[in-house]
Amino acid sequence: MTKKIKINRHVYWNPYFGGFLLGIIILFTFYLTGRGLGASGAMKSGVVTIVDTIAPTHAENSAYYSRFISEDKSPMNTWLVFEALGVLIGAFISGGLTGRIGWRTQHSPKITKKRRLAFALGGGILFGLGAQIARGCTSGAALSGMAVLSTGGFITMLAIFGSGFIFAYFFRKNWI
């Protein structure tokens, strides 16, 4: 009996409720700033900052990094970096309230921790690469793009989920 009384940490909000609030946040963001949300942009700023600190001449000569470097402003001083810091704080509060905080690696019992981490690294590399090619990730391109009915946003959304479903077969052992 005691086990049942214990709070289930993996009970989450109703998805429609979460989606509704998320939609209100996106609406509010557009109303205030005229732009949408993002996530991969902050990580790009991080990479630009690291490269600019370690190899400044290389960063200035590069055709890509140099777009995000200016004389008077650090590449970390962007809207998306502040927003990403907020995401970390907000998720920490939510996780803290429900007792989900803790160091752990989540994976299917059928695979090892090592395998999970290797696939996480590989998946991250692909996502980082794809997000640069498409100029935004699920938040910046797909979700914020769809909110203003951007053609590119809809195409990116269809491509992400379409390819996810097609390639899901090859990764099934990791999840089910």
Partner: peptide, 29 residues
């Protein structure tokens, strides 16, 4: 601000992100 449309970038970038999503289980946000 309307997210710009670079047709092939959106398609190919999206396909690569989809593989990354199902391999890694997350998206950046």
């Amino acid at each position: 601000y309307v997210h710009p449309t670079f047709l092939w970038g959106a398609i190919i970038g999206g396909i690569i992100m989809g593989i990354g999503f199902v391999a890694g289980g997350f998206c950046p946000g």
